[in-house]
Simulated scan of single mutants.
Amino acid sequence: MTETPPLLVDIDGTLTDESRAVDPRVFPVLREWPEPVVIATGKAMPFPIGLCEFLGIERTVVAENGGVVFVEATDELQLRGDHEAALAVGEAYRDLGHELGFGVVDLANRWRETELVVSLDQPLAPLKRLADEYGLVVLDTGFAYHVTDPSVDKGTGLEAVCDELGLAPGDFLAVGDSENDAEAFDVAGEAVAVANADATATARADRVTDAAYADGFLEAVAPYRPA
């Protein structure tokens, strides 16, 4: 068995099935991983924190595509990115007659601290134009449009985690499925895209699994697990 590296892993499309339900087969893998595990996602921090909490693993997360970083071992929380600009884009978008698309309560944005998300069924062109006016970018993760600061991403988030833990990004195995994983792929020691990954993630990965979604994750980590 190859020496086990620290692990950075996405949630949606990587630990889940196509309906976005987390596959329970990943639970023992994450619980038993002998090196640090970083949950890196475009979701707001309560989601990866909750996943870690119920898995019983240390709460080390990169949320909001690098905008939020929390490392339980050092009790360090970092917020990066221009949230005010993201909120201004949302207001301007609504002024044009569009909606964010997540209903009145809007659980997708309710706990966000650095970016804004818009449903994929809303028009993209005006959102991109407004984001550009405010110096922001729009990421299509396959699950939502993320209006975010171009100075942060999952790669910078991983670097921040490494600074806290005394590790190097190149120590890590990174597994993901989307363009928002690409920057983490660039700095990780090994990057694996699951078979359902988009073209950007696939192009930046060191290898691509034959299997999709959580099956792909299990394939990605198989060389580092006992037979």
Rank of each mutant, 00 (worst) to 15 (best):
A182S: 13
D121G: 07
L51Y: 09
L77G: 05
G155L: 09
N180G: 11
A188T: 05
G189H: 07
G155N: 08
L107D: 12
E18N: 08
V152I: 15
V9H: 01
Y93I: 07
Y145V: 06
A227F: 00
R207E: 15
L55C: 10
P150S: 12
D206M: 08
V38N: 04
Y134W: 13
L165F: 08
T156Q: 09
L77F: 12
G157D: 00
G135W: 05
G155K: 05
P46A: 09
E32L: 09
R20D: 15
V71I: 13
P5E: 10
R225E: 15
L30I: 14
N109D: 13
F172T: 00
A108Y: 08
L30F: 10
D206V: 02
V138S: 12
G90E: 02
L130K: 12
L167D: 10
R112A: 04
G189W: 05
D198L: 15
L87Y: 03
S178Q: 08
A86S: 14
A125D: 15
E64Q: 15
K43V: 00
V194H: 01
A108H: 10
D215R: 02
G67Y: 07
R59H: 13
L124Q: 11
E18A: 15
D171P: 00
R94P: 00
L107R: 11
F27I: 06
V68P: 03
